[in-house]
Amino acid sequence: MIGEGTQSTNQRRHNYLQENVEVGFFTDPTVCIGCKACEVACKEWNEVPDDGFTWLGNSYDNTGHLGASTWRHVLFLEQDRQKGSQIVSSHSLGSGDGEDPFRWVFLSDVCKHCEEAGCLEACPTGAIVRTEVGSVLVQNDVCNGCGYCVVSCPFGVIDRRPQPLPDAGGAFKCTFCYDRQKSGLPPACAKVCPTESIVFGRLDDLRARATQRVQQLREHGYADAQLYDPIDTSVRGTHAFFLILGEPEAYGLPPKPQVPTIHLKSAWTAAFATAIGALIATLCAFAFL
């Protein structure tokens, strides 16, 4: 926590991995300053290659979305409609009532490390595994690049790296800095975040802290503050959850994410019924010969 200095869970060494403690990220956009230090630290530590230099003309966001070469993505949201009760600026010109609901929100997005992960369920080679700390890890030396995980992630996080980038073809996403965690180091993004908008720590601690923060913000007039952690869906909660102001759609977060495997039963039932039907039809055809 801010003020704890080197004793903060973002800074100090830990044994979470050795002790099989479930860890997570809590990301709080209300203190994010949009510096993108997390995005840069992630690219630096993980040696993520650059995938081109494109100016998007979308506020200060020039990465657009998470992908094979963007594992932390700072979203810049310029909202000019009032979404619930919110702090407004009085420095507006010509809007008549002197109230301007405009606000600029920054949110550092990342792989959610789902409790029930679509990518992991879909992976046929076993390249995607659940780690000791509960995170979801792609082992790139096992991944064969089939791309099943890409369509199975309900958040559009994981992606295959295109040519001509290094390791092209393989699927990539946030590793939760598994290599750092093995040595007792906190993930790079949390370590550098100057405002502790990203907090790394024990999952149970973070959940309690997040609930408290939502409460605090509501008391301070942010009536639309809420937690984004889809526990009630088939994803069954995440290891990287977010505090958001307003609705999840505004942040590109699905309001009701579902793991595609929930459709398995009906898909298999339908396939089975079709097979039986085809068999009967064939038998009938022979019977009337």
Binding site: K36, E39, V40, K43, E44, D50, T54, N62
Partner: peptide, 24 residues
């Protein structure tokens, strides 16, 4: 935040240059 002074150092580093790639 992505660049340093007139960019003489940061414009040459892909991890920074990518995040603010054009004059606006």
């Amino acid at each position: 935040t992505e660049h340093h002074t007139a960019g003489g150092m940061s414009r040459f580093l892909s991890h920074l240059a990518k995040l603010q790639p054009e004059m606006f």
